[in-house]
Structure formats: C-alpha cells, structure tokens
C-alpha cells in the first residue's frame, strides 16, 4: 500500500515540480551556445593564437630579433632573419608550432617591437600535424585590414568624436 502511495506521489507531485523547472528553462536564456554558428565572446585578456602586427603604413613590425623565441618555454617559435630591400631586418620565416605552444604569452611580453600579440583565435583543430605550424602569412594581420565599410566608417566617427572608445 505504502509503495503504491509513494509511486503516485512521484507521478502527481514530484514530476510536475520537475516539469516546472523544465518549463521555466524554456523561457530562460540558454547557457550553451549555438557553436559554431554562434561564438562566445572571449575575455579581453584571453590568450589564443598569436598574431603579428603591422605599422600603420603596412610594414611588418617584427624584426626577427629572436627574443620571443628565446623567451618561449616550449621552444616552439622558429624564425629566419633576413635583410629586405631597404636594408632593414625582417623575418623571412616566422613559424609557431601550436602543438607545442602552451599559450603562456611570454612571447608577447618579450617582444620589444610590440609585434606579436596573443589573439583571441582558438579554433585550430585539424587532422594533420603540419597544419598546426602557423607561418608568418597566417599570423600577420591583413593590410589594409579587411573591414566592413560601415565598421570603418564607425571607427572614423568614433575617432573624430571620441565616443565609445575603449580605455587602455
């Protein structure tokens, strides 16, 4: 008898309570994301894959000084310096092996030219090892930055009127 009562209680009292929770969540914002269609915005200081900056005129900042490679605890940066037609030093080859990289950010810290930064990119799954070697071409930011024309316009406006600019 007692058992029958308990079972009924489960069906008619506990279950509706549980269903209520479900119902409540139906109208709440979900915690998961519709990845890969939607992506989670990363924290500003998130350290993903490195990228190489350029000067405003489009020339590469990196001079292949080798300090990032020297600072790298995983020894995953390889570069070959060379002289460009102007007589400046630049990186002819610049590679990072992301299978080894531990994303410590030491390279960014070591760089005296403010050339290398830890970016927000984190999607590097692949089915072969070679594609984990990121070359200079992969890491250099585009020049001119391929931007939505509207965004560029907004940025200009923002610059002129000084609104909405990020601090720091």
């Amino acid at each position: 008898m007692k058992e029958i009562l308990t079972a009924l209680g489960r069906i008619f009292i506990r279950m509706p309570i549980g269903m209520l929770v479900v119902l409540k969540h139906l109208f709440k914002k979900p915690v998961t994301l519709d990845y890969p269609r939607k992506k989670k915005p990363m924290a500003p200081r998130f350290m993903g894959r490195q990228y190489l900056e350029r000067y405003d005129d489009g020339s590469e900042r990196c001079v292949s000084c080798g300090l990032c490679a020297a600072a790298c605890p995983a020894d995953c940066i390889y570069m070959e310096p060379a002289e460009n037609e102007k007589g400046e030093r630049y990186a002819k080859v610049f590679e990072i092996n992301l299978l080894r990289c531990i994303f410590c950010g030491f390279c960014e810290e070591a760089c005296p030219e403010e050339a290398i930064f830890m970016g927000h990119h984190y999607e590097f799954s692949a089915d072969n090892r070679d594609s984990f070697i990121w070359t200079k071409e992969d890491m250099l930011v585009k020049h001119p930055r391929k931007d939505n024309p509207f965004k560029t316009l907004f940025r200009r406006v923002r610059k002129v009127y000084g609104v909405g600019e990020k601090k720091g």
Binding site: S64, C65, G66, A70, P81, A82, E83, R89
Partner: peptide, 9 residues
Amino acid sequence: WRYKIRVWL
C-alpha cells in the same frame, strides 16, 4: 654575419 642568426642559437 649580417642578420643571419642570433649568436645564442
């Protein structure tokens, strides 16, 4: 030796 390699390597 110009821009060839860093000496510590």
